[in-house]
Write a protein that binds this DNA or RNA. Structure first.
Lengths: 212, 212
DNA sequence: GTCTATAGCGAGATAGAC
DNA sequence: GTCTATCTCGCTATAGAC
């Protein structure tokens, strides 16, 4: 242990504080958004001083950018993970997509609403443009759906509509969660049970809707 | 014309300015949210001075409250409009709900994301609590779905899941519109065509998914 | 690398003339 | 009712000690 070089120790400490900041920023930004978040909140959450935030990340915008990019990537990575697989058929892919997206949302409850909202409010900003470009929506799935239609494997449907449906059914409940909870009094525990059910329910729902 | 009493003329002018403010506030708040909106932006949009906003509405919060309540009501009014009807069967109601919600969203493109986001960011605030209570989610539809299941009219399904699915498919596309547009380059015109198609497509999709 | 203190500015809100 | 000018405060960002 004592043989670790000093530079490594320093690096270790540096990363640790930086990581504390990132974790805190993630929590505050995803909850309050760019304009709603306060640097003071992030500092408090991280248990450090406000000035340190500026030492590690030059500005609020730079810190936000990091969190926003990370969040956008996470949101679209899982759902596209299996899209290009050659080994699964369309139904299996849909099942996997739905499950992955629901699991991701359960682990990161504020993430979908955060990403969607920042794009909504700042669609024309350079940050959104840059990040939006990076997220390559695979055209493979669209093509595979079209092919399934052509071969009579599923009923005729506009592939883009089906893609939208898959995303809608997987993500919307997490975005609407606070509204649902306020006027139905649904507890976090019951919500979690409901979402657990949904992994299977949504896949079934979609497959029934598109099969011949 | 000249016979109109002075009091009426004055009232006319007052309402006119107030209406200008509300219209401007609606536009700015639904686009930028509470924390992102600036009173100056609203004044500019209304073509008046900042001080006038405070003359008509005491504070930014009060003005926001009005817009937010109006928006929340609009968002959930249309979708529940036909829920209690005795004359329609379940499938007809679903068709109507979907169509109404899509039409409303096309006319008020920023509204769904706005409402959902403010509830997300301020779920515990008094404004959200108050407004959330007012929106009575009719239990009639849930009951009617359960009955349809019991009678074997539709396949067994958790009524709440079906309700969530209806809302998801109708509203999510408008919330995700900016993201879709950035990375597919979809124009406003093509998006509108797609949503027009959806009125029928979504209803079909749901009915196929739940029929026996 | 981490802190305290403070500069500097932007935004909500008010005073007061017209 | 509507405007200009201004107060006040909160927030981002920086200076500088340790």
């Amino acid at each position: 242990m004592t043989q670790i070089k000093e530079t490594e120790v320093i690096k270790e400490i540096r990363i640790s504080t930086e990581e504390k900041i990132v974790t805190a920023a993630r929590k505050v930004f995803t909850k309050k958004g760019l304009s709603g978040a306060r640097m003071q909140d992030i500092a408090d959450e991280a248990g450090i001083n406000k000035a340190l935030l500026h030492y590690y990340f030059r500005s609020k915008e730079k810190l936000f950018e990091k969190i926003f990019e990370e969040a956008s990537t996470k949101m679209f990575t899982k759902i596209t993970e299996f899209i290009d697989s050659k080994e699964m058929n369309l139904f299996e892919k849909i099942e996997k997509m739905v499950e992955n997206q629901i699991v991701m949302s359960m682990e990161n409850p504020f993430l979908p609403a955060f990403v969607v909202n920042e794009f909504h409010q700042n669609a024309e900003s350079s940050i959104c443009q840059t990040i939006g470009q990076k997220m390559t929506v695979s055209k493979k799935l669209i093509e595979q759906i079209q092919e399934a239609v052509n071969q009579g494997f599923i009923r005729p449907i506009n592939p883009l509509q089906l893609f939208i449906n898959i995303m809608s059914l997987s993500m919307f409940p997490f975005i609407a969660k606070p509204i649902m909870q306020i006027n139905t009094g649904l507890s976090d525990e019951l919500f979690a049970v409901l979402m657990e059910q949904r992994k299977k329910e949504v896949a079934d729902f979609i497959i029934r809707a598109i099969r011949m």
